[in-house]
């Protein structure tokens, strides 16, 4: 009995330490991802430094599934820049190009009109009812960099949640069963 008991104890203690190590390393992964994201937010000054293109309104420049890197600086907004903006009453931000800018003399506030490169008309139809111009506070950032295809991962995961669960489940199983 003594020998078996010892074995069970050793397995138990080993398992406990293994579980602990795995939990710590999992925590490290999650927190380092969080640190990178928050760090990017600090550097770029934009509340979402990376966005996925969801529509084809900027084709052939940006296709669905491409990702854009945003930057938000104090520099004034100028025509031609590709900006990401939020419209009141719409949840999903839009990535379009600025075609008109009117910068007021005294306040420095800007009136901005945008259009998707692939759309026929400007964006007044997308804005809130009666809204003619975008202002500074609508704009989340301007696109500075581009990486193709990578965003498909998130598009697939949001549109087919079952794949997300399978992936998370498989990863979790791998973490639990791995011996290293």
């Amino acid at each position: 009995m003594g020998w078996i008991g010892e074995q069970i104890d050793s397995i138990k203690s080993l398992n406990f330490r293994q579980v602990l190590t795995q939990a710590v390393s999992l925590g490290m992964i999650v927190t380092s991802a969080l640190i990178i994201w928050k760090g990017l937010m600090c550097i770029t000054g934009s509340e979402s430094p990376v966005v996925v293109v969801l529509s084809g309104s900027m084709e052939p420049g940006f296709k669905r599934g491409d990702i854009l890197f945003l930057h938000m600086s104090k520099d004034p907004i100028r025509a031609g820049e590709i900006v990401v903006f939020n419209v009141d009453g719409r949840e999903i931000p839009i990535v379009h190009r600025v075609i008109k800018v009117h910068e007021h003399q005294d306040t420095g506030e800007v009136d901005v009109l945008t259009k998707g490169d692939n759309n026929f008309g400007d964006d007044r139809l997308l804005y809130a009812h009666g809204q003619l111009w975008l202002h500074r506070h609508h704009i989340m950032g301007r696109a500075v960099g581009f990486l193709p295809y990578v965003g498909w991962v998130t598009i697939i995961m949001t549109e087919k949640p079952i794949i997300k669960f399978i992936l998370i489940g498989a990863l979790g199983l791998l973490v639990i069963t791995s011996k290293e």
């Binding site: 075609i99 009117h102 007021h104 420095g108």
Partner: peptide
């Protein structure tokens, strides 16, 4: 009134 006006005419 405006320090700068930029109006896109053609692209």
């Amino acid at each position: 009134n405006n320090a700068l006006n930029q109006v896109s005419l053609w692209d």
